[in-house]
Design a protein around this nucleic acid. Structure first.
Lengths: 144, 144
DNA sequence: TCTTGACCCTGTAGTTACTACAGAGTGTAG
DNA sequence: CTACACTCTGTAGTAACTACAGGGTCAAGA
């Protein structure tokens, strides 16, 4: 398999394959006489593994460790387990943040009734929070 | 106010203030004789506006447009409204993605019963999806 | 045989929103 | 006078790719 064939199988770009090699996730495959990379089906599996882990939000260095662990069958499962649990907690935190953000944004959007900027509720909401009113958002020193 | 005073008021770093100036969000303030930046309270309001918008997930170019709109009181509110609605949709999409991700990850984590890597359910789950079994994750060409 | 087009290679620069210096100058307290 | 804390500019680093530039290779068609 050539680089682009491997890439297609996993649904990534050829550049990404090269990037993963440089990043130490994919091993340098043998080359043809003309220096083209030559991949085996097993490489496609490894690449799919990487993609699945990435889609679950694991970062590259975590994926690297997972691959190392999976290459090392005798090892204890707890490292991997710990990484997954940490990732879960991180995702749950992000989820909570995003939920809060969504409700704030929804309330922001619901307040807009059209009309002029000067009475825009969205701008007002973003400007409020300090004691100042919207009339002086560092105006008076225009820059253009 | 000096740069770091302004920064403290909005809870950002001094470098971030400079960065926002370079990015065209904060206007270059007047300088002292020795070339130090001299901010007014209104600049703090503008910076807070930026921070609030950023915390709601708006990107810098959107924030720039919002500031431009808010500097231009006569303008119609619909541009801002549109930006906020688009942002809401984006956040809702991310929220949905993250929810799906969380449940996948939760099921992954719940399957781990400890033990050796060779029978790790987490690795298995990441490796599955193609027809291949976990025994051949591009092994056989170790690289170290 | 020559050419065209589609690949492949390496290496570098761009993206976002900052953060972290390096190397220089300034201001003030002891 | 000196130490220390600040300021300035400019550049390089972060994550995970993406997008070239400038070269080489290969197979099919004229």
């Amino acid at each position: 398999m050539r680089t682009s064939d491997l890439a297609k199988r996993a649904g990534v770009r050829a550049e990404t394959v090269l990037f993963y090699e440089k990043a130490g996730l994919l091993r340098p495959p043998p080359r043809t006489e003309s220096n083209y990379r030559c991949y085996q089906p097993a490489d496609a599996d490894r690449l799919s593994f990487i993609r699945r882990a990435r889609e679950l939000g694991f970062d590259l260095s975590t994926v690297r460790q997972m691959l190392a662990a999976s290459d090392n069958n005798g090892q204890d499962c707890s490292t991997i387990d710990k990484m997954a649990r940490e990732q879960l907690i991180e995702i749950q935190q992000k989820l909570a943040d995003l939920k809060a953000l969504e409700s704030q944004l929804r309330s922001l959007v619901s307040q807009c009734a059209g009309g002029m900027i000067s009475e825009c509720r969205i701008i007002e909401a973003l400007a409020s929070g300090t004691q100042s009113t919207r009339s002086d958002l560092a105006e008076g020193r225009p820059n253009s």
